[in-house]
Write a protein that binds this DNA or RNA. Sequence first.
DNA 1: CTCTGTGAACCACTTCACAGCA
DNA 2: TGCTGTGAAGTGGTTCACAGAG
Lengths: 208, 208
Amino acid sequence: MSELTTARLSVYLRCLESLDASGVNTVSSQGLATQFQLNAAQIRKDLAHFGEFGIRGVGYYVKDLKRHLRQILGLDRSIKVVIIGAGNLGVALADYAGFRLDGFDVVALLDTAREKVGQYSRSGVPIRHARELERLVEREKIDIAVVTVPPDAAQETVDGVVAAGIRAILNFSPVSPRVPPHVKLKNMDLTITFESLSFFLANGHVDP
Amino acid sequence: MSELTTARLSVYLRCLESLDASGVNTVSSQGLATQFQLNAAQIRKDLAHFGEFGIRGVGYYVKDLKRHLRQILGLDRSIKVVIIGAGNLGVALADYAGFRLDGFDVVALLDTAREKVGQYSRSGVPIRHARELERLVEREKIDIAVVTVPPDAAQETVDGVVAAGIRAILNFSPVSPRVPPHVKLKNMDLTITFESLSFFLANGHVDP
DNA sequence: CTCTGTGAACCACTTCACAGCA
DNA sequence: TGCTGTGAAGTGGTTCACAGAG
């Protein structure tokens, strides 16, 4: 299943939540498409991969489809997250309000700096020593590790995360660590993102 | 020019910087490909869009190609960045060390909260009132706006940024604001990213 | 008659394979 | 000979267009 498809499922879920909040009961793929600037055929095709959720001549029941999407995305339970690297970015992510709402539970921040261990983030996430990772994973059934350590520590951190049995990693450091095939690694490389924008500024405006 | 191509140019630049730091003078597309797990033909094709930088039978001069890529990516000058929304994430980004190294200069954080305005981030980025945006853009020739405001303020913030004349926006809020066609908007949606990982955990391990 | 689910056509990006230059 | 630059082939993802269910 394509990355792009699953990202769109998230978008659809968000659209449906908005419609549901407005009291809308049913929506057609065409309705979704025009309201949220999507492609109707693509919506139908994306959804059809997972079952027949629509009713011909009617569309989709908003609440029904919402529930299906939540389940497909694995959001029908709390997802436990640990953040490794209690620097600016790590702590900011731990305190990011959006997560809690969407069922993501940041269990701990991990770091090796003596003066950070034992502290709490503003929103109350405890900072613990990185060596506790294995124990934490075992006891708390961690689902996702977020890596916000300096680039030269990224690969060893990721290795530790994999060894601890975590199968999904979100990496913010500007390197692409190696992971075994059963582990899903997603890189959020801010430098690449900024350089893309810079490229557009340098070249984008010239084209006819 | 494809998004994917420009992202790869950033990757190539990083690889070349690493080679240069190791004292390597020339490298072939094959050399780059095997060392950094890329595709040799793709490297050649990506580069060939912008000129003939290689020498047949030899490869590419590392320092030369580095300079060319910097120029193509628009990194041969300082890029001025303003961050709108001095919350956890905005301040963390302002203090992110990686930027300064790569020629990105965070000129200011903007916010509307009276108690934040006048303060400084840990690394010394001043927090100013959001209404100063237009003046700041005019005086400082801002290139990129980073939007880290709450979702319901995202569209109006982006509208203001566009009105101020900024043509490249990096948006972290979980909505996709509308922008006119001459403006480049890049969304970094953490919720979608986490939900993709959740999807993988829920479905990835089953496939044969 | 409306709207879904889906094969077929289309398009974009990637990889292959080779002509030709150093 | 070794490697680039590039047309041709291949791959995967998107859009079209319609048969058929409700």
